[in-house]
Computed example of a mutant assay.
Amino acid sequence: MAKKKPITESKIIELYMDYVLTHNEQPKSVYAFAKDNNFEEQKFYEFFGSFDALEQSIFKVFFDSAHAVLEKSEDYINFDARNKLLSFYYTFFEVLTANRSYVVHALEHNKNQLKSLKTLAKLKQRFSNYIEHLNIKTLDLKQAQLEKLQNRGLKESAWLQLLVTMKFWLDDTSPYFEKTDLFIEKSVRASFDLIDTTPLKSLIDFGKFLYKEKMHSN
């Protein structure tokens, strides 16, 4: 009998992504998946309760990979909130691009309903926590309940912005996804200008960009 290979969480994820991209579907069962890859079924359940839970973890790993890269940068640590978020976006979408075939497989058929997609639940938890600790300057409302509502609204709007960007990236056919980079730069700048209640120039610029893209797609 062949010797069972040491197995880790990251290895299971790697094997799973390879399987779904090769077969265009989930494995038939955890038992079959473990047997095909020469490890004990029990080992799978040490890390994941199901294939659906594994899929949620993949997007969490994408976030963690991007965040780990940023945390190693001294420049990033000294950035203000706006530039930290911009850096996160660029790095996160580099990670997505490196795994585009899998991301397209996981999201393409539901790209218009990303907000309700359970596959992104753990990503949302990670990202919302990230936004909470960015120390984004908001209005001083001087009332605890209102501050709580404002912070919740900030996290939800930031999450929606990330989903919209992911949808744009999924549809982007430009070389090196150059249009997505433009989208990120303009949307993050516009959102911070709105929070800071500064002039609407950036918002208008972003609106022109979206209108231009819509006209070209039609």
Rank of each mutant, 00 (worst) to 15 (best):
K28G: 05
N37P: 00
E25R: 14
K5P: 01
L21N: 06
I13F: 00
K11W: 03
K28C: 04
P6L: 10
I12F: 07
V20P: 02
P27S: 08
I13G: 05
D18M: 09
P6Y: 09
K28H: 10
T22I: 06
E9F: 08
P27H: 07
N24D: 12
K5Q: 11
E25N: 08
I13M: 13
V30D: 06
K35F: 08
N24G: 06
Y31R: 12
N24Y: 09
F33P: 00
A32K: 12
I7F: 07
K28E: 15
S10Q: 14
I12Y: 06
I13E: 12
L21C: 11
D36F: 06
L15A: 05
I7W: 08
K28S: 13
Y19F: 15
D36R: 14
K11I: 03
F33T: 00
P6H: 07
A34T: 06
S29R: 06
I12V: 13
K5L: 09
I13V: 14
K11D: 01
E9D: 08
D18C: 08
Y16P: 01
D18F: 10
T8H: 08
K5C: 04
K11E: 07
S29D: 06
N24C: 05
Y19S: 07
N24K: 13
A32E: 14
I12L: 10
S29F: 01
Q26N: 15
E14G: 05
A32R: 13
E14Y: 12
A34L: 06
N24L: 08
L15E: 02
K11R: 13
A32Q: 15
N37K: 04
K35R: 12
D36T: 08
N37I: 02
K5D: 10
T22H: 09
S10H: 13
Y31E: 11
E9A: 12
P27Y: 01
H23I: 02
Y31T: 14
M17H: 00
L15P: 02
Q26A: 10
N37R: 09
E14M: 06
Y16S: 03
P6N: 09
F33Q: 02
L15W: 05
H23M: 11
V20R: 07
K35G: 02
Y31D: 11
S10A: 15
V30C: 00
Y16L: 05
L15K: 11
K35S: 13
P27Q: 03
V30R: 00
I12G: 01
